[in-house]
Nucleic acid binder design. Structure first.
Lengths: 223, 223, 223, 223
DNA sequence: AATGAATGAGATTTCATTCAT
DNA sequence: GATGAATGAAATCTCATTCAT
């Protein structure tokens, strides 16, 4: 039994190694210019070996993408609490975003892959078909929309706004930021400056959707 | 003299033809999947001929990009008027955006190219080096920043906001929208729905940066 | 002794399993598109294990081929009887062919393999070297030739024909039919229609080599 | 005008060169083991160049196949004459076959390619679907069938035979012979011996389908 | 004895770019 | 000035076979 488990562990390790190397290269050079040969070299394996772990290049990239995506969403979910107010919810989401963005390259890699495997697909669908297409981030979409609705009910957000629209705007914004950041020179990607800039954006949006009567300092909570 | 000029004119015409064909293909299929062979075929020229007009593929794409970019900015400039208030300025910019987005494919082509030739470069620089890097859209940047400052002076925008930051946020937003739109199925790219969504976003941002005392309906001017 | 024998028995069983699986796959998809990986999977063994039983792919395929070939010939031999007339011999051979063709996939698998491992070798040698090369089917060759000679002696077949030539013709014909049949959609491979067609062919050949005086209905014996 | 034509001629020449080299290699080693790299090397061109003349490997091989096939059929057609008797027709076909087989490698290459690109398709369809599938050699099929019918009308062939069946038998036979011959060592492929063997086969078939009353020496015309 | 893991060698195909005419 | 033709370099993927455990 020990042997089988060890083998499995080792296999899993190899798979992780490959993904790790792929991620490094994607982070370094962008998904579009990373070849299977590059990854093999980085992992000190033969090209053929990669195909023992992933049926093709797309599968490898997709697995990386999905993992990062799920990790991010799960992290948020684990911290969200049904009893939270809409505003607390936003605060929590922001905290996660800040944390993930500051501590790993996952978000950046995610968008690099996304732009590579689906260059003609927006990460967030805008337009008539948006409602239908929730496969990518259905959970996230629902989650944010619910938070906005809650905020409206609680009298913080302007009841005339359309929660779906605002949600899409937020998602586009976040993904754009990451996308932009993923294109920055590595050295400055995670700087405090960027986080501040993102925070400013977040604040502006919140104020923009706030109910008129709500004092704008109300949204200074972000740190 | 006539001959030399005619030759030059013809040369210019050819160049335009090549760019026109390239743009059509980019709009149709996305920059990433347009090859020099495709362009040559569309223009009914040989591949080699393309290289008589552009040193390489990147030069061709870059020229298209810069032209569209400059056209857009120039259009705005030609309609802006120093005597306008900050708000009128925003209104004008929005009008141009709406017009260009609704009537030509330039913005979409621009971003398709950008994502292709500089997937690791952000369209808008965020972060410490933003100030320095104004080569891409220096004019635009200055223009918008000035408008925001004016708005602050006029008592419409919150004086605590940082005009540069807000400007970058707006630019990211606009470019993201176009970028997202450029990835939508052709049929829905320019629909009223999308324009409405963009407008909502614009309104939210404006409200977000408005001075508290300003009535939010003040920004309903957009149509 | 029991242990050694059991081991040997088990080893033989494994070998059979491998061959059985290989045959199934060959029958299903054609020898050319069956990989060692496919066979290993089908047999629920590792690829490496296959190499414990067969030095390489060719050896495995060749063993299957030879076995089927020998089985077929032995079956005929067991039913042939020295006291039979040439015609009775032909009838018997035909019966075996019909039986094997109708009841097993062996003939089809045989030719699929043959075409794969020896695409540049004829199954039946024609030409000057035919006499020399009897390794593949020496027995069969001798058997048929003898039958033809007997037929000539018995006054059924035209004495001016060359038994060797006729034998080769018959062998080519039979192998061609099987070869053709092995390329048919599985569903129709063994239909009555095909058997009828083969029978017609057999009849025509027999009539073609018959002595002039022999009534052609003499060869209607085939059913 | 001269230039355009010269270019066209040269292009055609190159295409021929490529096909010639491919054919040599196929003849030498069998279609299955000829790679695009091999052909490029033989033709002293780069691999990429091959793709300027043929969209892919299959197209190259198919063109060779079809050309040979058409040449053969056209040659026969050009020599056949509606006023010929069925027997004269057979004689003519045989003459062509003998000539082509004796003077070029085309037939052999054809079958090598056929076995490679359509290993699971019989060259001649036997069985229920035979009638339907005439795409490969419809002309040839019709031609031979007509000749047989004529022979029956003229009182040479047995009226009880089924012309379609006999035609299929003949086609299988001929293709098998070539197929077998294509697998022989190059040196002996075209020897007189083989031609004699084929001739014997032809004779036997003709006698096999002859009307009983027809003297068998009637078919000695073949030489 | 069995196997999971690894790989070398090779297959087809694409594309930006060059060059002789 | 224009181009047909050519190509080097690279990409993805496959498969029979080997080897350490």
């Amino acid at each position: 039994m020990g042997i089988v488990e060890r083998k499995e562990r080792e296999r899993a390790k190899r798979k992780e190694l490959i993904k790790k190397c792929a991620k490094e290269l994607i982070f370094e050079n962008g998904a579009a210019s990373v070849s299977m040969a590059d990854i093999a070299k980085e992992a000190e394996l033969s090209k053929a070996t990669l195909y023992l772990y992933f049926v093709n290049k797309e599968a490898l990239f997709l697995e990386i993408f999905n993992e990062s995506n799920n990790n991010f969403i799960e992290r948020i979910y684990s911290k969200l609490n049904p009893s939270m107010s809409g505003l607390e919810g936003f605060k929590t989401v922001w905290g996660c975003y800040r944390e993930v963005f500051g501590n790993s390259e996952d978000l950046i890699i995610m968008f690099s892959i996304w732009n590579y495997i689906a260059p003609t697909l927006p990460f967030v669908q805008i337009g008539e078909e948006a409602e239908a297409d929730k496969n990518t981030s259905e959970l996230f979409y629902t989650m944010i929309t619910d938070m906005i609705k809650k905020g409206i009910d609680e009298g913080i957000f302007d009841p005339t706004i359309n929660p779906q629209t605002v949600c899409r705007i937020l998602m586009i914004l976040f993904s754009s930021i990451v996308s932009s950041a993923s294109k920055l020179p590595k050295a400055v990607r995670k700087s405090q400056f960027i986080l501040n800039e993102i925070e400013s954006m977040y604040e502006i949006i919140l104020r923009g959707i706030a109910k008129e009567s709500v004092n704008r300092d109300f949204f200074k909570f972000l740190q």
